[in-house]
Nucleic acid binder design. Structure first.
Length: 163
DNA sequence: GCCAACGTTGGC
DNA sequence: GCCAACGTTGGC
């Protein structure tokens, strides 16, 4: 069964346009146990994820990617020169793991966070919970499809291709 | 840049 | 195991 996720990235470091250009990317650098556990224990190949731009102007969902490989050790934890270096990590026990995702689509219409907030359709979405900082978030299929619909249809302040 | 909310660390 | 201090996230 396909599951649905939301994955946050700061577009200044890696955006949906970067993923579109690369085709696929390793989602490494996650250093939160709950997010790691989702990736390690619950993500499966074929799962779909909303690609979320955080710390953006505005923040919101930019498109969709698909999980194409799971159970990958995050080797950036072993690299002293990496910002994601973790001195406790070893080759035998890298501690952190990651997944590979592939580009599916960039939405014709960017879906800003404030727009998601406005609709009662998205009540219960973990992203909207106060203080929710988790970078990997499970999303139910209804919410996933609702956001995808918004991304495919006109929204008040964003025109096609102009964001 | 501000600040609220959270997660992690480390002394005890 | 408690909890204060600290660092980070992320919206604004």
């Amino acid at each position: 069964m396909t599951r649905y996720w939301l994955m946050k990235s700061e577009p200044t470091s890696y955006s949906i346009d970067d993923l579109k250009q690369d085709g696929f990317t390793l989602w490494d650098g996650v250093r939160n146990y709950q997010a790691r556990n989702y990736m390690r224990d619950e993500m499966a190949v074929g799962d779909l994820a909303l690609f979320y731009h955080s710390n953006a102007f505005p923040s919101g969902v930019a498109g969709i990617c698909r999980i194409c490989k799971v159970g990958i050790p995050d080797l950036t934890a072993l690299d002293p020169n990496s910002p994601y270096y973790d001195k406790r990590a070893t080759k035998a026990k890298p501690i952190w793991c990651t997944v590979e995702v592939e580009y599916v689509e960039k939405f014709p219409y960017f879906v800003p966070l404030y727009e998601i907030r406005e609709s009662s359709e998205f009540d219960g979405l973990v992203l909207l919970e106060k203080g929710s900082r988790l970078s990997i978030i499970p999303v139910d299929s209804t919410h996933f499809e609702g956001i995808r619909d918004l991304g495919h249809h006109s929204s008040p302040s964003y025109s096609e291709g102009n964001w």
